[in-house]
Write a protein that binds this DNA or RNA. Structure first.
Lengths: 341, 341
DNA sequence: GGTGATTTCGAAAACGTTTTCGATTTAGAA
DNA sequence: TTCTAAATCGAAAACGTTTTCGAAATCACC
């Protein structure tokens, strides 16, 4: 192993490390001739600066950390792709960590990242997280944090989100306009903001259109790793409320569980019961009938989150005041077969 | 911003940084009483070591790099999950880069990683890569590399793979044993080893069971981002060879395209034509009929790749000779509806 | 109180850069 | 020639640790 360092170039040329460093970095107080010699020697010796030493000296790592709550799947893989692409473009590396929806994990991982001296971190909160002091602490230490998707309104930092309540409102309104009257909701668990907001959007849409909200038509699906939850609750609701004509599901995964059950039980979708999903995962075009859903722009979310973060990093470095942004990415309804008779 | 460092603890206690450092690291030449005082002070001052400084001094970063060729999707997201879990368990961070199937990218990114002084790198080769000097160079510089999934036989390092040829052979043999006689193959493009090996497995299985190989029954699907390829080629083959009774597809994605077309065209699966996929992606249980496929253990692949890599890192650190391993993970047939009448 | 062993601590070098600031040399002008 | 300004270089400090090695202090024992 023969890493060449500045001092190797320097002694090969009979000059000082200072001069070598300055020549390579384009300082103007080095003559053209020695600069040329240095550059050439650096090439032939295959010099590559030791990033760790540079990081220590310059106090920046050109690295950002990303903490996601769940396994890299579906939605988060789109976000991740957006993050990786934009980070690459702006010359940053990215370290990925997953908290598995555990607050303690999330806290520990954030601490690890700032200890690693990442220049900033992107995070999507775990379902358990209801204390945000770890995030405030990071920000206080001048490590900017931007939250995406699963955020907390109370913490002061930039955020990039979709408007879950509005998207849900739009979805349910769409169903109402299509003539559906008894619309159930398969919601997520009670803590995450997404789950709450989508539920509220559902409820408000009903009320805004003169349909009475009935809590008995709301079922909880809190398992988000497979579609069993949707399947089982579909079975249950058809026993308890056989007269529903549509279901708005919190997730494509849940929606697919529903359709699976309907297909097996001979319940026609959408003729007897329409199904509306959320996220526009790939598999929503695989299921038959194809699923009407809300497009959630994951790739773009990753992109803009990185972009905002890196801008904040630059501001901090130049001691400019950083202004936090809340970016709300637009969603749209993807109409497919599961809601059109 | 008030990062506390060793010197802050030292001066607060009126002792030297040396003593503080040693106390925190459990050196035995520090008295119990001062050790206790140091630890307490470190806690109250919320001390966290500066990893960059530690890295520079100890010459290790406790970080590994991962280069994957394609967008984080399907198979690679399982691998990634395996990597993240095992790395976390062993106390390593992971930096992710994607080469987008470009050799130049891959080369640049590998250089970036070793410049970043990662302790080792995991990579899956791009389709373009046929020169391996960049990998050998990394190994020569004492940065261990382990290849997974898309590997090159010629480069000397550890590898973790599945036996694509054998898996394909098993799949086709399964179809033959089920009584299918005219079995087509939808293959991938011509460069990647995976694609070649699966094709060879298909061909050998036919020949081994006395079925003549017919190149007209092999169709190329080289788009791996959606299932249109499978869909269109299914349409084509049913025009050109309406008497086939099974298709072995290189990928679940392709297989799903096929089933989609069959469903729309009223061709019964598996009664008229059976379909066999590859990889066991999640959506293979979403499609109807559910897809028979080969389980490709992505999660485990990530796991063992990390494990091997970290072991090699340890060996190198202790100046032990490192012995390269070639791990071949078992695959198995997942029988579902698309092949059982 | 003297000897040697043991315990406890700290000075200093090192990791590989970057950057400040002063020193030296050269060029230009008088 | 002498003086000033510009051009070119390098010594040294700094980033925050870790670790070696020697020094000082304490202890045990006679």
């Amino acid at each position: 192993m023969n890493d060449t360092k500045l001092i190797d170039i320097a002694s090969a040329l009979g000059i000082s490390v200072t001069t070598v460093s300055k020549a390579l970095k384009g300082y103007t107080d080095i003559s053209k001739s020695t600069r040329a010699k240095v550059i050439e020697m650096a090439e032939t010796m295959n010099y590559m600066p030791n990033s760790v030493a540079v990081n220590l000296r310059t106090n920046e790592t050109k690295t950002i950390g990303v903490i996601i709550p769940a396994t890299v799947h579906h939605f988060f893989s789109s976000v991740l792709n957006g993050i990786l692409e934009e980070a690459e473009k702006r010359g940053y590396l990215v370290i990925i960590l997953q908290s598995n929806e555990k607050y303690e994990m999330e806290k520990k991982q954030l601490a690890l990242l700032i200890q690693k001296r990442v220049d900033g971190v992107l995070m999507s909160l775990s379902n358990e997280t209801d204390d945000f002091s770890h995030i405030n602490e990071a920000i206080r230490k001048n490590t900017p944090v931007v939250l995406f998707d699963k955020i907390a309104k109370r913490v002061e930092c930039s955020k990039v989100v979709i408007n879950d309540a509005k998207a849900a409102y739009d979805a349910v309104t769409y169903l109402i306009n299509k003539g559906y009257k008894k619309i159930a909701h398969f919601r997520g668990s009670y803590v995450p903001q997404n789950s709450i907001d989508r539920f509220l959007g559902y409820k408000r849409a009903l009320e805004a259109h003169g349909i009475e909200y009935d809590s008995k038509l709301v079922y909880v699906c809190d398992n988000n790793t497979d579609f069993e939850d949707g399947y089982e609750n579909a079975q249950k609701i058809m026993n308890e409320h056989p007269d529903i004509d549509a279901i708005f599901a919190i997730t494509d995964l849940v929606a697919i569980g529903i359709i699976k059950y309907f297909n097996e039980a001979g319940i026609k979708t959408p003729d007897q019961v329409a199904v509306f999903g959320f996220s526009n995962w790939f598999m929503s075009t695989v299921i038959s009938p194809k699923l009407t859903t809300i497009d959630q722009p994951g790739f773009e979310m990753g992109h803009t989150a990185v972009s905002i973060l890196i801008d904040e990093i630059a501001d901090i470095k130049e001691h400019k005041p950083v202004v936090h942004q809340i970016i709300e990415l637009p969603t749209r309804i993807i109409e497919r077969e599961s809601t059109v008779k």
